[in-house]
Amino acid sequence: MTPVEILGWVAALVGTVLGLPQLIRLARTRSTAGLSLFGWQAILVLNLIWAIHGIKIGQANMIVTNLGGLVTTSIVLYLFTKDLGRRLFPVVLPSLLAVVVLVAIDLGLGSTAFGVASLVPAILANAGQIIEVVRSPSVTGVSPVFLGLGLVNQLLWLSWAVLLNEASSKISSFLLVLMIAFNLTWYLLRRAGLRAFFVRPVEAVEVAPDLAGQAEFTGQ
């Protein structure tokens, strides 16, 4: 096995278990405070399109990690919609339609065009989470382990893509490294006491639970 293959499988292993800390925290706390439903809808798109892209370019590590992530993402979305009192299918339908469009780009225009197009759900997933971390009165529903593993995972994929010279993965992973690093940094600042910005008036009453949750900082 070549160094590139080893690195790819390490990234696949990390990616496969990436969502588990967030799933465990969500199941344990029953709290979606600070989580972005829109962000997880975009993550569902990413899991599906990168699994299909992995099939296209014959990279089993990419297939394994995204199929594993798909299972976790689906459960998170189910728990999320249950908490919000919404039905699952209407929530995931926009994601499925986006997958159809992006797969068509991959098959019709090639990997570079796909890499650029895949930035859209990648940006939206992280931007959605960043917005929630910045403005949510409480971030106790967010797993710091999930954010940390996400950063490690993207650094591994970026290294793999550079060694393999895989254009779409390099483009996507580089931007994701920057956004996840910002997300993690802001989360840590919030748990250290930084106040929420741009809080919706209806959410202002939820500030107190966040203070009570400071003791859970080291939890998943």
Rank of each mutant, 00 (worst) to 15 (best):
A117C: 07
G148W: 00
I105M: 02
T112V: 12
H53F: 13
V92R: 00
D83K: 10
P137H: 02
T32D: 12
H53C: 08
L23Y: 10
A127I: 07
G68S: 09
P21V: 07
N61M: 14
Q41V: 13
I57G: 09
P121F: 04
A51P: 07
R135F: 01
W50M: 11
G85A: 03
A60N: 14
L77H: 06
A42P: 06
G148Y: 00
P144H: 08
G141E: 01
S143A: 12
Y78T: 01
L48D: 00
S74K: 03
R25K: 15
S143M: 08
I123G: 02
T72V: 13
R28M: 12
L48Y: 04
L102Y: 03
I24M: 14
V133I: 15
Q41G: 13
P144N: 08
T112C: 00
W50L: 12
S138D: 15
V134L: 11
V139I: 10
P137L: 03
S36T: 11
A98D: 11
Q129N: 15
E132D: 13
V99K: 01
P121A: 12
I63F: 11
V101M: 05
T73C: 14
L70W: 11
V116Y: 01
N66R: 04
V120M: 07
I123T: 13
L79E: 04
V101C: 02
G34I: 02
L119C: 11
L151E: 09
G34N: 00
Q59I: 15
A113K: 00
I24L: 15
L84F: 03
P21Q: 11
V100K: 09
L147A: 13
P137C: 05
N61S: 15
Q129T: 04
I63N: 06
L119T: 05
V64W: 10
L37T: 06
P144F: 00
S136I: 00
N61G: 15
A27C: 12
V76W: 00
A42I: 07
F114W: 01
I57D: 11
W40S: 10
V116N: 02
I75T: 05
R25Y: 10
S111E: 15
L102I: 04
V139D: 04
P137E: 04
I63V: 14
